[in-house]
Computed example of a mutant assay.
Amino acid sequence: MLISEFAEEIRALRATYASIESVSDIERIRADVADLSDKAGAPDLWDDPDAAQKVTSKLSHRQAELRRLEGTAARIDDLEVMVELAQEEDDEDTLAEAEKELASLKKSLSDLEVVTLLSGEYDERAAVVTIRSGAGGDDATDFAEMLLRMYLRWAERRGYSTKVMDTSYAEGAGIKSATFEVDAPYAYGTLSVEAGTHRLARISPFGSADKRQTSFAAVEVLPLMEEAQEVEIPENDIRVDVFRSSGPGGQSVNTTDSAVRLTHLPTGIVVSMQNEKSQIQNRAAAMRVLQTRLLLQQQEEDAAKKKELAGNITASWGDQIRSYFLYGQQLVKDLRTGYEVGNPSVVFDGDIDGLIDAGIRWRAGERTNPTS
């Protein structure tokens, strides 16, 4: 790459970063870090462990945001210096290194740009993801487990904290359902584009040889509410069942009735939790998820009423959003964005950033230019 081309590329990087910095409001982030640091340094902070955990967690998240923004700005400055040194010394090796850093910076800025598109009411929150097997027998339950591993590997690659909250194992292969939490900034906004029906087409390992099988799994993504006060639920509206945890686990599994199932009688919504150590902890976790689901259900009903009044009703829940082909063409294709990956194995190993980023950009476009 010519030096003049580097100069143009660096100008473009600075312009992109300036727009990201403006939308991100870096001064507000710095102010939040300062305020949270003061709270974290209070001598009585750990008198209330739950409140202390929230403060330290939020501080860690905001510090990470700030480091990412400031670090990207510093990298652009360093790249400019690297190019200038390479020009002065006519150093081809340094220029080659600068080219690699330029490509890396473009990717980092693209990732930051995607975050600026996460401006929904709950986008900044952690996420609670539920995967349920659908039609397809053993192939569907196996597919549900493949998706669970895919998302957990994605979170692991990003250094995000995860916790599997509940798992219902199938009698044959895989799982009937699983619920897990992803504790990271913008986890809900990021993963919410994964909500919908996923389809797997492959030669079934469970049936007759060479028989193609199509199976389905549903992915639900909810924001994790910091406080369980958004929706008040009368005690008479809830049925509580306790039972023993099932499936593989440590020595406390299957020894006490610590698992909890909450049924919201007016709506029929059921939430089960079994992965905490005590019944009290499982009930609290289940209640928080139940309240979140009721809140979102109310929002969906309100939105549906508005669409009905406007004469534009679209049944989007449960629509197929992505297909995974594990025979012949070996392809993963998102049906909303058209984004394709020609290597399903890397996708199932958690390399789904491209699919998610395309989904976030597509959603932003839909919000800006909704179809009539």
Score class of each variant (00 low, 15 high):
L2V: 08
L2G: 14
L2Q: 15
I3S: 12
S4W: 08
S4K: 11
E8H: 07
E8C: 08
E9T: 12
E9L: 11
L13W: 00
S19L: 13
I20V: 11
E21N: 04
S22C: 09
S24P: 04
D25H: 12
D32L: 08
D35G: 12
D35N: 14
S37T: 14
D38N: 11
K39L: 15
G41I: 02
A42R: 13
P43H: 06
D44N: 14
D47A: 13
D47C: 11
T56S: 09
Q63D: 09
R67L: 11
R68A: 10
D78V: 12
E80N: 05
V83P: 00
E84M: 14
L85F: 14
E88V: 15
E89L: 13
D91V: 07
E92K: 11
E92W: 08
L95G: 05
L95V: 03
E97T: 10
E97W: 04
A98Q: 00
E99Y: 10
E99A: 13
E101N: 07
D111K: 08
E124S: 15
E124F: 14
A126E: 06
V128D: 04
V129Q: 06
V129S: 04
I131K: 04
I131N: 03
R132C: 09
S133M: 02
A135V: 06
G137S: 05
D138W: 03
D139M: 05
A140Q: 01
F143H: 03
A144V: 00
A144L: 01
A144Q: 00
E145Y: 03
Y151E: 03
W154P: 05
A155S: 09
R158G: 13
G159E: 05
V164K: 09
V164P: 06
Y169E: 11
A170K: 00
E171Y: 06
G174Y: 00
I175P: 00
A178N: 04
T179F: 03
F180E: 02
A184L: 02
A187N: 05
A187P: 06
Y188H: 09
V193P: 02
L200C: 02
I203C: 07
I203W: 05
P205C: 06
F206A: 02
T214L: 04
V219T: 05
E220L: 12
V221Y: 07
P223K: 03
M225H: 13
Q229I: 12
V231M: 09
E232L: 10
P234Q: 05
R239E: 14
F243R: 06
F243W: 08
S245L: 08
Q251W: 08
T256E: 13
T256Q: 12
V260F: 01
L265Y: 08
P266G: 02
I269F: 06
M273Y: 04
Q274M: 11
K277C: 03
R283I: 01
A286Q: 01
V289F: 07
V289S: 11
L294H: 01
Q299L: 15
K306D: 11
K306T: 15
E308R: 15
L309F: 13
L309S: 15
G311D: 01
N312I: 14
I313C: 07
T314R: 15
G318K: 03
I321W: 00
S323R: 06
S323W: 03
Q329F: 12
K333H: 09
T337R: 00
E340R: 08
V341E: 11
P344C: 05
S345M: 10
F348W: 08
G350N: 03
G354V: 07
G354A: 12
R361C: 01
R361V: 09
R363A: 13
E366F: 04
P370G: 06
